[in-house]
Design a protein around this nucleic acid. Structure first.
Lengths: 200, 200
DNA sequence: GTCTATAGTTTGATAGAC
DNA sequence: GTCTATCAAACTATAGAC
């Protein structure tokens, strides 16, 4: 024996199969848009027949759901890996840039995470959990840098960042027209919530 | 004779038929989402058979295109009807509020105008024209109030407003959570571009 | 777990009679 | 201009053999 029980083997193989399916789904979504994803196309990429997908996912929406969940989990990981400077403004800039880069790196992912674009799709509680965690940890990170922000302040923050992301995708995809306004936007926001300026 | 030539009659009748079709299309789009619009459903509402639509529109995308065009034309009309206060800040507030209310009043219209949500749909040059005009006239209105804004300033402005609209739709549809931040957001922006404060 | 076969819909679009 | 009839294709999902 090699230190793995039979059941673990089975679980691993199932997980690998799921991963392959999700990878194929992401590829299709990126090429043709999230809304244009079809089971046949996904199955073709994996090298199996469409009905075989149902051995791994209950429905097409279940695939969307898994994609939704792992997208927010990815963001969570990226956020946790980001090293935040001590100073509040600098920390805010890094947080915003981290999110902006993440959201503008993949249109399919962005549409799935942030825009309700698939008719009838609602994320499950389980897939939605990392989304909540991501926002919570973001607020905590701000608090840890002494940024006192009430609910309205947070809403304004998300609106500013979301606005830049959306304009970037809608009017200059692949470019940097709104991305290069990010630092300025953060300073604008920081001024508004009364964060002290830094003269560095 | 009644002062109308026969050809005018025909044009009127055609225009009326087109209007009925577009009205039905809007109804369906509002009920089930823009992406879920089908020709059969539209035809049913009009009281004709689906193939008859092709006497008035070349394709489904042609219907989307007409809807896109008239949405921006509507915004243009609304903007022109808005009375702007003399003071720059107050004018900016009215402009922003006018757009925000327009964009949050109708999700289907918003998705069609501002989000690329229909796979393969690209507005024609003719339908896109009012969109360009709307932005141009907005900039002119700002200039007329003495608001000197370069390209980056304008981009930041559209990002802030678009951000509020998108967050409102994504996280509080029908509510006012981001709508009530609009005046504050405009002041934040006005401070950033150096508009003098008013003590009224 | 994967396959074949197929059910059961729904879709956009065309042909041709009236 | 509207109709009937229909095409050709696509889709999600299920049943049952292997």
């Amino acid at each position: 024996m090699l230190g793995k029980t039979t059941s673990t083997w089975i679980t691993d193989r199932r997980a690998t199969a799921r991963r392959k399916i999700l990878d194929a789904a992401w590829t299709v979504a990126r090429e043709q848009g999230v809304a244009a994803l079809t089971l046949r196309e996904v199955a073709d990429r994996v090298g199996i027949r469409a009905p075989s997908l149902y051995s791994h996912f209950d429905s097409k929406h279940a695939i969307y759901d898994a994609m939704f969940g792992e997208s927010w989990q990815e963001l969570l990981d990226v956020n946790r890996a980001a090293e935040l400077p001590k100073s509040p403004r600098a920390a805010l800039r890094v947080m915003a840039r981290t999110y902006f880069d993440f959201a503008t790196a993949d249109l399919a992912r962005h549409q799935l995470m942030d825009v309700r674009t698939i008719p009838g799709f609602m994320p499950s509680a389980q897939s939605y959990a990392p989304a909540i965690t991501a926002l919570d940890e973001g607020i905590q990170q701000m608090a840890a840098r002494g940024i006192r922000a009430d609910a309205a302040d947070i809403d304004l923050y998300t609106a500013v960042i979301a606005g830049l992301v959306n304009q970037q995708w809608a009017n200059d995809p692949g470019g940097s027209r709104w991305g290069r306004l990010l630092e300025r936007a953060i300073d604008m926001y920081a001024d508004n919530i009364g964060l002290p300026r830094e003269d560095s």
